[in-house]
């Protein structure tokens, strides 16, 4: 019976899953960015048009979805720092594993601070 691959920096372990998450969050943020440039462009049309569209961002459904967007931005930005450190810091590769958990911790802490305040705005 073949043994499981041991895993490397890029395969099977934290190195791979951090990369998968970076891609997924990146694609999600990209498509929101396209929508967000278009909705902001409505300020050039009329105050009524902009307010009508931006008010949908204040509904419970989209308000909760914004938490997902913020979580994606937090992970993608913190893991981006980790990538830069792996590329440019002499000990980056050695500490890439622990850096992933630091990334997740920082993202989670900021998310935990943001979430109750945002929900109080959406549902308040």
């Amino acid at each position: 019976m073949p043994s499981l691959p041991a895993g490397t920096l890029y395969r099977g372990k934290v190195g791979m899953w951090s990369w998968v998450l970076h891609r997924i969050t990146g694609v999600a943020i990209f498509f929101f960015l396209l929508v967000h440039v278009l909705d902001t462009a409505l300020v050039r049309l009329s105050p009524e048009a902009y307010n009508a569209v931006i008010n949908t961002y204040k509904t419970p459904l989209i308000g909760v979805a914004e938490l997902g967007l913020v979580a994606a931005v937090l992970y993608h930005s913190m893991n981006g720092v980790r990538i830069v450190l792996i590329d440019f810091w002499r000990k980056g590769v050695k500490y890439q594993n622990i850096m992933f958990w630091i990334v997740v911790s920082i993202a989670f802490i900021v998310f935990a601070i943001f979430t109750p305040r945002h929900l109080s705005h959406v549902f308040g």
Binding site: N51, G63, V70, S77, F114, H121, V122, G124
Partner: peptide, 23 residues
Amino acid sequence: VLGHLFVNLYLGEGIKAIDFAFV
């Protein structure tokens, strides 16, 4: 981006305060 999110979604009334006058 984090500065943008902090000013527009965290400070003051957050998403509730965003409208044409805010922009």
